[in-house]
Amino acid sequence: MNIDLAGKRAVVTGSTAGIGFAIAKGLAGAGADVVVTGRTQAAVDKAVAAIATQQPDAKVSGVAADLATPEGAADLIAEVPQADIFVSNLGIYGAKPAFELDDADWAHIFNVNVTSAARLARHYAPIMKDKGWGRLIFISSESAQNIPVEMIHYGVSKAALQALSRGYAKALAGTGVTSNAILPGPTRTESSVAFIADLAREGGIDPAEAESRFLAENRPSTLIGRFAAPEEIANLAVYVASPLSSATTGAALRVEGGIVESPS
């Protein structure tokens, strides 16, 4: 299988670290002209340099903007007015007891995780439609189908993102543009590594044991028994971004290690 994205421009939001960075790197490795985004110029420059160092032939640039705001989205659109591939990876999460979630918590997580994606898709999708080819990819989560009691608002926002993806797939039916959601499970990103390290210190155990305990207590249905690597998520995203995925649209594609009990 040869994935060739030469001549395609890809915008990946929230791509200075973690899953977003792995996706940006994977798309660049497949030949796409990739735009990395993040809130600070320093983080964007670091990510762009890292990809360029690992892949000297990569076509990669960056835009620093707070894409959770209309102003930040406008800045990105001004610098990158069109794209063939749009990956909405920007997202936040955080644990908070269900009965303590207030209006501000709900508004904030929806603004970052859902509204930002809808705002940018609203711009890029019609351009893809006019060209007769494009890929919308929304990074949701297994938490969309397996709502975590410790962060219900996060799970609900990711379920909304999955619905957004399905809605765009219907709106773009027959145009050559596909829209799909990717549902990762626990992934070994910088933030999750720090989280597990904190658990290890608190429990007086090593990080590997802390990870195993976390999964046993919080994701006991996992079939791989470990956190995924960001590259494992990116591999699916690169395929979905490619011409090879032309019959895949409106789908919720799981790469969560079998946590979700449903077989489909």
Score class of each variant (00 low, 15 high):
residue 228 A to R: 04
residue 210 A to D: 03
residue 235 N to T: 15
residue 211 E to N: 09
residue 198 D to M: 13
residue 235 N to G: 13
residue 199 L to V: 10
residue 238 V to P: 01
residue 194 A to I: 07
residue 185 G to I: 03
residue 195 F to M: 13
residue 184 P to G: 03
residue 182 I to K: 03
residue 206 D to A: 11
residue 214 F to D: 08
residue 193 V to W: 08
residue 196 I to D: 01
residue 178 T to W: 00
residue 194 A to W: 07
residue 223 L to R: 14
residue 225 G to N: 11
residue 180 N to A: 05
residue 209 E to N: 14
residue 188 R to D: 12
residue 214 F to R: 07
residue 172 L to T: 03
residue 211 E to D: 09
residue 236 L to G: 02
residue 226 R to K: 11
residue 181 A to T: 05
residue 225 G to D: 10
residue 193 V to D: 14
residue 195 F to T: 05
residue 204 G to A: 11
residue 187 T to G: 01
residue 183 L to Y: 02
residue 175 T to K: 07
residue 209 E to C: 10
residue 237 A to Q: 02
residue 232 E to C: 05
residue 229 A to Y: 13
residue 239 Y to V: 07
residue 206 D to I: 08
residue 205 I to G: 05
residue 187 T to N: 01
residue 199 L to S: 09
residue 203 G to M: 14
residue 180 N to T: 05
residue 175 T to A: 11
residue 192 S to L: 14
residue 219 R to C: 13
residue 222 T to V: 06
residue 204 G to F: 10
residue 228 A to F: 03
residue 188 R to I: 04
residue 239 Y to K: 05
residue 231 E to Q: 12
residue 195 F to D: 07
residue 226 R to G: 04
residue 197 A to D: 15
residue 214 F to K: 06
residue 201 R to D: 14
residue 235 N to A: 15
residue 230 P to W: 04
residue 222 T to S: 12
residue 222 T to D: 03
residue 221 S to G: 10
residue 237 A to L: 05
residue 205 I to T: 13
residue 172 L to W: 01
residue 218 N to T: 13
residue 176 G to C: 07
residue 188 R to Y: 12
residue 211 E to A: 13
residue 225 G to T: 10
residue 181 A to W: 00
residue 211 E to R: 08
residue 219 R to M: 15
residue 211 E to C: 11
residue 199 L to W: 07
residue 239 Y to E: 06
residue 179 S to M: 06
residue 229 A to I: 10
residue 171 A to P: 03
residue 216 A to Y: 09
residue 233 I to A: 00
residue 180 N to V: 06
residue 187 T to S: 01
residue 179 S to P: 02
residue 180 N to I: 00
residue 232 E to I: 03
residue 176 G to Q: 02
residue 209 E to R: 14
residue 173 A to N: 13
residue 183 L to I: 03
residue 202 E to Q: 15
residue 231 E to C: 09
residue 197 A to E: 13
residue 194 A to H: 09
residue 222 T to A: 07
residue 201 R to Q: 15
residue 196 I to P: 00
residue 179 S to R: 03
residue 222 T to Y: 02
residue 220 P to T: 04
residue 202 E to W: 06
residue 218 N to S: 14
residue 231 E to L: 08
residue 240 V to A: 07
residue 202 E to Y: 08
residue 214 F to S: 06
residue 180 N to M: 05
residue 196 I to H: 01
residue 178 T to S: 12
residue 205 I to W: 08
residue 173 A to F: 15
residue 182 I to C: 01
residue 226 R to M: 06
residue 182 I to P: 00
residue 227 F to P: 00
residue 194 A to Y: 05
residue 192 S to Q: 15
residue 227 F to N: 01
residue 170 K to I: 12
residue 206 D to C: 10
residue 240 V to S: 01
residue 223 L to N: 10
residue 205 I to F: 09
residue 214 F to E: 07
residue 225 G to M: 09
residue 194 A to E: 13
